[in-house]
Design a protein around this nucleic acid. Structure first.
Lengths: 190, 190
DNA sequence: CCATTTACTTACTAATAAGTAAGTAATATA
DNA sequence: TATATTACTTACTTATTAGTAAGTAAATGG
């Protein structure tokens, strides 16, 4: 038997994320993952005992990722606008690969998740909001951005534009997302 | 046997909409509906042969409803702001009853729907967008609203705020939705 | 008043769901 | 080199899924 190395776990995690973001949490099964990766159903359960565990790990990976991005942006000597554009580009990418964001993907199913999984979602949401908030505050301070709301509220406006924007793009087309993207930047620059 | 009158269909439709908006399309079954309404599984299939048919009917009911609202607002001699607030209040209500909108609820699962059902969703989305767009144009013309984007793009910004706003409210709380609501109105009034 | 239609129920089916228990080959560890 | 441990597979189970076929009581309609 050719030993499967530990990137089976990573493969499940990536495929799981992809499926969650493409067809939704309750629309795929462990059997789908197993078939795709040429492993058995039980192998998926070995790495992620329950489906909620899998989603939780997807969320955790996002948390790690955003923590990393946060540190990168903190050290970066680029304009706040460039920082914001880096964050926005993640959503543009989602539209390109026909996915929606991990949070938006669970929005409908949120109430069916175990409480501890929901708490992880809250952590991710607050992390992303704080990252954007920080960037907006920075941009306002140095004169790059103009807005009258608090950074928190301005963040809420932008992130809801992006989150629902990628969702809308699947229904009415990518152009609408592009309009939204441009409008966000325009709004901030006076 | 006491004859069930045709509001069984209505009851299924209402409960179906409620479930879609509360736990998502793939997270409830016809058995759930049957149990709740004290009817048999097959009775649900009698009224809505497939689950996609049920969702489609929910969307159609929304289309009828928005068509009606459109006519009402057309004849109404109230400010554009009041018209917009009527539309916004629908989303405020969703937050209060812990639901998300019918479109947002299907966003993740969208690709799992049959093509003709998706087309109905497109129709509903365009209808709502046009209704808001018209209201914004009207408000701009008579000096109630100020915005620099086209009415279409401004509509996209507002509707994504609302749609993702109700989704976010389930995760971070209702206050965030309230901030969004206020900011939308503030933005438009100069 | 007879035939049809409506609105169901009873009784299923075939497929799939998430999940588990027990076994195994290869690898790491002591 | 014996013993865990890792990363699986085999082989299930139990529950639930969407969906259907056939029957039936009551209402409708000619």
């Amino acid at each position: 038997m050719v030993t499967k190395n530990n990137d089976t776990r990573e493969a499940i995690l990536h495929l799981g994320a992809s499926l969650i973001q493409q067809v939704g949490y309750h629309a795929f099964s462990y059997a789908d993952i197993a078939k795709s990766l040429n492993i058995k159903n039980a192998a998926v359960h070995y790495h992620f005992p329950t489906k909620a565990d899998l989603y939780e790990s997807v969320v955790e990976a996002h948390i790690e990722n955003y923590l990393l991005i946060g540190k990168e942006l903190e050290n970066a000597t680029i304009p706040a606008k460039a920082k914001l554009e880096k964050i926005i580009s993640r959503y543009t990418h989602l539209v390109e690969v026909d996915r929606i964001c991990v949070i938006g993907a669970i929005a409908a199913d949120y109430k069916t998740l175990p409480v501890n999984t929901r708490e992880k979602v809250v952590t991710l949401v607050e992390l992303v909001l704080k990252l954007v908030e920080k960037t907006l505050t920075e941009g306002k301070k140095n004169g790059e951005f103009t807005f009258t709301e608090s950074s928190r509220v301005q963040t809420l406006m932008i992130m809801t534009n992006l989150s629902a924007g990628v969702q809308l793009a699947r229904i009415t087309g990518r152009k609408d997302f592009d309009s939204i993207r441009k409008s966000i930047l325009k709004q901030l620059s006076g």
